[in-house]
Amino acid sequence: MFDTNKCIACQTCTLACKTTWTSGKGQEYMLWNNVETKPYGSYPLAYDLKLLEMLDGQQWNGAKYDGKTIFESAPAGERVLGWRPEQQDYAYPNVGEDDCAGQVDTGSFLSLPHMNWFFYLARICNHCTYPACLASCSRGSIYKRQEDGIVLVDQDRCRGYQECVRGCPYKKVFFNPMTGTSEKCIACFPKMEQGIQPQCFVNCIGKIRLAGYLSKPGEARADNPLDYLVHIKKIALPLFPQFGLEPNVYYIPPIHAPVSFNRQLFGPGAGAAMKAYRNAPNDMDLAALLCLFGSTEMVVSRFQRSGETITGSDEKGSPLVRVPMREPVHVRPAVDAANQLVRINCP
């Protein structure tokens, strides 16, 4: 789960992933994790716009999607509606960075649809419930693990046909020209198997991320942080739900971006999610839960708020971390009267 409101696009997550997994030959261009500035950023280039155009103006009817998923839109001979980026589409990993920002009260040089807002969208593999990469592979080289839902490319079985690259609407599978196989985010499964959150989660400076396991909608548990945010509060939403993959990265939409744009990215629930997030100061449980993000490297399965403290626990209920909702404030006057000193800030 990613809280877009906290992301500052420092790319620490990108580098944490890069140095851990993709420092090999043929992986130079790969960013299993990237952070793009919306509305104009994208990696690879226009990965989202291209497919939205191919879907040709699909419509939501209130909370119901009247359009077709990429599986239902598959042309003859294909399993999914897809496309494959060209090499140059990977050449600009941070295109649109910080566009468009600032006030335009005195007039602007350019006239663009979104004049004075932007936000950062961190992206990894969504480990979808219905992965299009898996559906696209004619060899069955991609599998979704039953035990934790992580989607992996079998590096022994893959023959580098790049059908998964074509099929994934989020373009999170990458072809490695040196090994001749396709590679993707592995959700740091060696860590997750030990109950530790992935590298991009634990290295996040802005503490925007929280990893865990989501229950089925009918089995939501109120003390599961993810269930609470996704199923109960409905504050976190999937990216491009209309594609039909049920992506398992959930985003808390940016509250300063127009709701119309958020609806396009996160579906019809975006408006209510923004409202709920704005109301967090009056919603103690929600506010407490937001404080839990980035507070421990362990996977938190349960949470409990007591006053202004939230406790995160493992599956067995053993406490992992306690987080105060308000950090104590210490004021150090610029002039230390007792010692007759003027304090200065040292780096």
Binding site: S23, G24, D156, N176, T179, G180, T181
Partner: peptide
Amino acid sequence: MAKRYAPARALGNVRSG
């Protein structure tokens, strides 16, 4: 160590290398 960054090669995938 190089194999750690080339899993297909580490596994002996004939497509690789």
